[in-house]
């Protein structure tokens, strides 16, 4: 049996206004000159607040059982884990790609390659 919760349109209206305000704020932040890492953090933070508003009120997660709320956090947790697994590969990757490209250019033709007629 589901937990009863209110469906006031006023709540949805306030949530909608909040989302629009946060969208305008994010667009304003994108025009500011700041370090890319800080800008990324601010934009991700604003996005997370927006997602929390949508999930809590539009998707009614605020009124669901804690078990359901917890499993919806799994993608977020895996996103963080995935990012930290990718970060080591970003070191010197651009250099490695260039080296591979040079090697490919200098590599001799495959012994079994047939010239096109």
């Amino acid at each position: 049996m589901e937990i009863a919760h209110p469906h006031g349109y006023r709540v949805y209206g306030l949530c909608w206004l909040g989302l629009l305000g946060l969208t305008v704020l994010a667009m304003g932040v994108s025009h500011l000159s700041m370090a890319p890492a800080i800008k990324a953090l601010v934009l991700v933070g604003l996005s997370l607040v927006k997602v929390l508003l949508i999930a809590a009120y539009f998707m009614h997660l605020r009124f669901e059982k804690l078990n359901l709320v917890l499993i919806t956090g799994v993608p977020l947790l895996l996103a963080v884990i995935m990012w930290f697994m990718i970060v080591p590969d970003t070191r010197d990757t651009s250099r490695r790609v260039l080296v591979m490209r040079d090697t490919a250019v200098q590599a001799p033709a495959a012994p079994h390659a047939q010239p096109k007629p």
């Binding site: 667009m27 890319p36 934009l43 997602v51 949508i54």
Partner: peptide, 11 residues
């Protein structure tokens, strides 16, 4: 869309 908007278009 919230994430695509922020990370692709705004960043």
């Amino acid at each position: 869309w919230v994430f695509i908007f922020a990370l692709f278009y705004l960043l």
